[in-house]
Design a protein around this nucleic acid. Structure first.
Length: 875
RNA sequence: GGGCGUGUAGCUCAGCGGAAGAGCACUCGGUUUACACCCGAGCGGUCGCAGGUUCGAUCCCUGUCGCGCCCA
């Protein structure tokens, strides 16, 4: 262990671990020593994680804290394993979210962005970013993130903007980016187009009104939840096979309130079973109607502007859509055209994911990415295993997306973002400009006003941050990245886009080898935690009160691929208790001379307990390793927790006390030192702060951050030692149980003899058992007043106690009766099984032998217990 | 409507063909020379329901009911 100073010195550990006071200082020391800075010239194998860039508007919430705990644990372990680790940080400019935030600020001063003008407004956003944008980065430091701050990026910085322009140009030239007029999701408040994934659907209460178009035999009834759109109807559609309407197909009907005559068309997409089987067709304001309109050559009549205000001439001109709706219904009612009304009528309504405004479908000219070929490539990379998704169950959802992706609307009518690099000339010229191309100037030339969807630039993140389009050393060394860790909720928002862009830009090399998808954090009511709902627990609050380590451990302990986790205060407190336990155990071991300065004694010089704990430790290393490799953080944490608390603290430390007192101090101190050394290394990726403090105190080493990761020995387990310690546990537990049920105070010393330990191979363990169960040596006046027997695999051990008086016979009968019932149940079960001929004929021999052994044990237990019961005095 | 997942102790979850587990909560007892953020003992479940496969099912299959998520 080369990282250890030979002249080990031991700073005294304070009595209590006070994370809030010391974590920041520890973190700064790591940063100052530049442990987290990746060396591109290193010949170590690379391990790369790009941080999912948080929104510049964001602050750290539990979802981040969980994801960061995962990424930090993964990268710290790899660093200890000898990888050249790069964890690259940065932020996303978050187009709509940031623009909205700044607009809200302006609104407080009574200003709009239009008042400032585009240039000034964008300046304002940059100022806002400088002032508030760094918040989340400082919060990451508190969590302990081992991030390479020297490589911090921003999606709007110069290099990334260059990457955006480069790929836009490349895709434009390849015919993968085009302009088209289509129905898009439009937010009337944000005044911009939205992609499908920026629209959230919810079941809202609305109204369903049925309106009669036309009169008499030629009339037809249509139902709608958006009555105001009837002003833009250009047809009524029915199913071609619908018997009810055969006579009307091809005729015209008068559209109420407008006097316009519109055709009745037959279209197979109309569901004859829904409502009256006839639908109004508003091509300019509904995506399905737009399709119908295309098929039948209907005009697209726009009747609302970008603010969802009616523009159709007439009495409703200038009304907002939600004012127009009741007004139009009232006007129709006055004409006797409302034949049915259902209110409330619950139906699915789309909302802007940024401001929750009801989305209005709108016909407009936008820029699109043709996804077919790049989505197919993204699909192929997962199908052929270049990128592995964890858990694999989410592959199907991934394929559902990549195989059915619609062309992606990438233009946004915002000011904050990457402006589309397309210029229009005075004579209808359209020129797409690359980063090194000359921008056309002169009379009549103007740039496209729109900016790109935020996900366009964040989709380039895995390679743009490494210097692409330049062929940089970083790109060569650290691409493809090793793991992308994120919540499954943004698999499609972001992961699919990165896959498409990465494969396209990097010659089919995947952006990441592994995609780890964790679940969502839920509150104690099982509700998703989110900024918008305001039901989040603040991870900073936990860090303040319980420490960053406890916060991290809580989150890691609940993290399994793809499954959600509910968190509550008690969990964080439990993790804090765990760190306290570790602190006290290490402090105690150090006070008793635990050391790594001497080599571990040879195997045959160790006690069974020493050999057992070392074997357990070895098994722990394997378990932590395999679980980390499989992203099973929860299992890894459980293994670490139970080894630390249950095996090491509850048993080995108690045994160690006896061994040290009995003249085996040197060897025991070495074992203690060794176990703690390895254990702290294993825990470091999960709880870096406390382990760093304890480990440097124990070993005098420089830092765990750059210490070596332990390797499992692969040696066979010492089964004899294991059996001995299991016997010790059983013996101690049974004596404690007897004491407890006899009403003895835990600390009360009782004289006692342990008989027959040698016959079952437990002689060496007796001193430990006596110490753990407060048995004192029998004196001259020793009188056996109680005897208990503990059944062990090799036979029973008899414990004779002098309780200085009569025992509680009733309690003892109860205890024995309970044991008897357990043994009887066991006997019944095994007897039945062994009496089943089919079982005897078909069950494998080892299973049969096991059942036979269990039956024999049950029988001897029953005999033994019955004898004890018979020997008890009458109650 | 289509797809996926899930129902195990009061709560949150692990286990997934051969003896029902953890943490928290709860009960009892504790100034035990590391730790009351602790120690010891205990209580608590016909593993959603109904069929089937099997010598054997919490575990596999089918159906059913409840819940959740994604897509329409």
């Amino acid at each position: 262990m080369t990282e250890l100073d030979t002249a080990t010195q031991r700073p005294d550990l304070p009595a209590a671990w006070t994370p809030a006071e010391v974590e920041a200082e520890l973190y700064q020391r790591w940063v100052d020593r530049r442990y987290f800075e990746a060396d591109v010239k290193s010949d170590k194998p690379p391990f790369t994680i790009v941080l999912p860039p948080p929104n510049v508007t964001g602050s750290l919430h539990m979802g981040h804290a969980m994801n960061h705990s995962v990424m930090d644990a993964l990268s710290r372990r790899r660093r200890m394993q000898g990888y050249e680790v790069l964890w690259l940080p940065g932020m996303d400019h978050a187009g709509i979210a940031t623009q909205n935030a700044v607009e809200r600020d302006l609104a407080k001063q009574g200003l709009s962005r239009q008042d400032l003008g585009r240039e000034k407004f964008v300046e304002r956003v940059w100022e806002w970013k400088e002032e508030y944008g760094g918040k989340i980065l400082d919060q990451m430091k508190r969590l302990g993130d081992g991030i390479d701050w020297s490589r911090e990026r921003f999606t709007m910085d110069e290099g990334l903007s260059r990457a955006v322009q480069t790929i836009f140009k490349k895709m434009y030239d390849d015919g993968l980016i085009y302009q088209a007029e289509r129905i898009i999701n439009w937010c009337p408040r944000c005044q911009t187009a939205l992609s499908d994934i920026e629209v959230d659907h919810s079941e809202d209460e609305g109204e369903l009104v049925s309106i009669r178009y036309g009169d008499g035999d030629a009339s037809i009834v249509v139902a709608t939840t958006r009555a105001e759109t009837m002003l833009g109807d250009t047809a009524v559609a029915v199913h071609p096979d619908d018997e009810r309407y055969q006579h009307l197909i091809g005729t015209e009907v008068e559209l109420p309130l407008t006097g316009r005559r519109i055709p009745i068309v037959a279209d197979a997409h109309v569901d004859p079973k829904f409502g009256t089987g006839a639908v109004k067709v508003t091509p300019a304001h509904d995506p399905n109607d737009f399709e119908i309109g295309q098929r039948h050559g209907l005009p697209n009549l726009t009747i609302m502007d970008g603010r969802a205000v009616i523009t159709a001439n007439g009495p409703f001109l200038g009304l907002d859509r939600f004012e127009a709706r009741p007004a139009i219904v009232a006007a129709l009612r006055a004409e006797g055209r409302i034949v049915a009304e259902k209110r409330p009528y619950v139906h699915s309504v789309g909302h802007c994911s940024r401001c929750n405004t009801v989305v209005e479908p709108r016909l407009s000219l936008q820029w699109w990415v043709k996804v077919e070929s790049i989505a197919a490539a993204a699909s192929a990379a997962v199908r052929d295993g270049r990128t592995k998704i964890h858990p694999a169950e989410l592959n199907k959802r991934y394929f559902d997306w990549t195989d059915n992706l619609h062309d992606w609307c990438i233009s946004r009518q915002l000011w904050w973002g990457h402006r589309i690099p397309v210029y229009y000339g005075p004579n209808g010229e359209v020129v797409c400009v690359g980063p090194d191309d000359e921008v056309p100037t002169g009379e009549g030339w103007r740039q496209d006003e729109d900016v790109l969807d935020t996900w366009f630039s964040s989709g380039l993140w895995p390679f743009s941050t490494l210097g692409w389009p330049e062929s940089t050393e970083d790109l060569k060394k650290f691409y493809p990245t090793s793991v992308l860790s994120t919540g499954y909720d943004i698999l499609f928002f972001w992961v699919v886009r990165m896959m498409m862009f990465g494969l396209y830009a990097m010659d089919e090399v995947q952006p990441f080898d592994h995609v780890f998808l964790h679940g969502l954090i839920r509150d104690q009511y099982g509700k998703k935690m989110s900024k918008s709902k305001g039901n989040g627990i603040d991870p900073l609050d936990w860090m303040e009160r319980y420490g960053a380590d406890a916060t991290r451990f809580t989150l890691l302990r609940g993290t399994n691929p793809g499954s959600d986790m509910a968190v509550a205060e008690e969990w964080a407190a439990g993790s804090r208790n765990f760190t306290t336990k570790l602190w006290n155990a290490t402090r105690f071991a150090l006070a008793n001379g635990a050391t790594v300065a001497r080599p571990l004694p040879a195997r045959d010089e160790l006690t069974a307990a020493d050999r057992w704990i070392l074997d357990e430790l070895d098994a722990l290393v394997s378990s932590v390793d395999s679980n980390f490799e499989a992203f099973q953080f929860s299992r890894a944490c459980e293994a670490l927790y139970s080894f630390t608390w249950d095996e090491f603290c509850d048993w080995y430390l108690e045994i160690a006390k006896v061994q040290i007192a009995d003249g085996r101090a040197e060897a025991t101190q070495s074992v203690l030192g060794h176990v703690l050394d390895v254990l702290l290394r294993l825990l470091h990726p999960s709880i870096p702060f406390i382990t760093e403090t304890l480990w440097t105190a124990l070993t005098g080493g420089e830092s765990l951050v750059v210490a070596a990761w332990p390797a499992a020995s692969g040696a066979e387990r010492d089964l004899e030692a294991k059996a001995e310690i299991e016997g010790l546990k059983k013996l101690a537990t049974e004596i404690r149980r007897f004491r407890s049920e006899q009403g003895l105070k835990p600390g009360q010393k009782v004289a006692g003899k342990v008989r027959g330990a040698c016959c079952v191979g437990l002689l060496d363990q007796v001193p430990s058992v006596r110490s753990m169960t407060r048995l004192t040596e029998p004196g001259e006046e020793f009188t056996v007043s109680a005897t208990l027997e503990v059944g062990l695999p090799k036979g029973a051990v008899k414990v004779e106690l002098d309780l200085s008086g009569a025992i509680d016979v009733a309690a003892e009968r109860k205890r024995l009766a309970k044991d008897l019932a357990v043994a009887q149940k066991e006997l019944d079960g095994t007897t039945k099984k062994l009496g089943n001929e089919a079982f005897l004929a078909k069950a494998p021999a080892d299973v049969r032998a096991k059942i036979e052994e269990r039956k024999a044990t049950a029988e001897s237990e029953i005999t033994r217990i019955n004898e004890r019961l018979a020997a008890l005095p009458e109650a």
